Computed example of a mutant assay.
Amino acid sequence: MEPTTVDTTALTLPDGPRKGGEALPVAGAPQAREWRITTTSRHTVSGYLPPWATEDPSEVDVPIEHLAARLVDVHHYADFEGQTVRNARRTGHDGAEPADLHVLCGSIDCVPFAADPDPRVPTVNLNLTPECWLSDLGPDDVLRLVAQLRAQADRLAYEVHPALVAARADWAAAHGDGADAVAVHLVGSRT
């Protein structure tokens, strides 16, 4: 059998083009590159390696019977940082000290040979909290989430914050400086 080379940049997937868009270029990113997987029998598969991709999935001397599995594992990604907030306590009320909690971090991902069509184009995976991910967000999904987060930020700023200030003022008026905020009077006891 004669060695072959397959250029996947022109590969048409069975479902045809999918929704999506181009990822914003990362400032200072190198020029677009090419990844290449070469088998022990010298068959080669190559494809576009975006400038924003963190790792190069290139490999040599892959047994031909493992080529399909290697292609499924091709995953381009670029992580982005989120926000750090103070977590009052860890789960389970175990008395642990407050800790930093990282929220709204994630990555731009593209898995060109994924079984599902959506991840075959760049999408966003967003970690809301350590236990909650929003996955495979397209451009419209990201903008919808941005609008929801802005609406929630406005609600916190213009509804919740004033209500909290008013609640604290009311509490202070009813309890003084807060030192004796909880007074227990038993029925029949002397006060």
Rank of each mutant, 00 (worst) to 15 (best):
H93Y: 01
G178H: 14
G138M: 10
A151Q: 11
V160K: 07
A147M: 11
H102S: 04
V160L: 13
F113N: 08
A173K: 15
P130W: 03
D154P: 03
A99F: 08
T129S: 04
P117V: 11
G138C: 15
V165I: 13
A174H: 07
P98H: 00
N87K: 10
C110Y: 12
V85L: 05
I108S: 05
D100G: 04
D170P: 05
N87F: 05
V121G: 04
T91D: 06
P122Y: 08
T123L: 08
P122T: 08
A166E: 12
V160T: 12
R120P: 01
N87D: 09
A151M: 13
V146H: 09
E159N: 07
Y158P: 04
R144S: 15
G92E: 00
A114I: 07
G95M: 00
L156N: 08
Y158D: 11
S107L: 09
W133F: 13
C105I: 11
D118G: 13
A88L: 07
L134V: 13
A151F: 09
C105Q: 15
L104N: 06
T123K: 08
T84N: 08
P117L: 11
L143D: 10
A99I: 06
L128N: 03
A114M: 08
H161M: 15
V121M: 09
T91N: 07
T91W: 01
D140Q: 11
L143E: 14
W171C: 03
A163C: 04
A172Q: 04
A99S: 10
A96L: 00
D116F: 14
V121Y: 05
C105F: 14
H102L: 05
G95N: 00
V124R: 06
A173W: 09
V142D: 01
A153D: 13
E159R: 12
H161K: 15
N87H: 10
F113M: 15
C105K: 15
Y158N: 12
R89K: 11
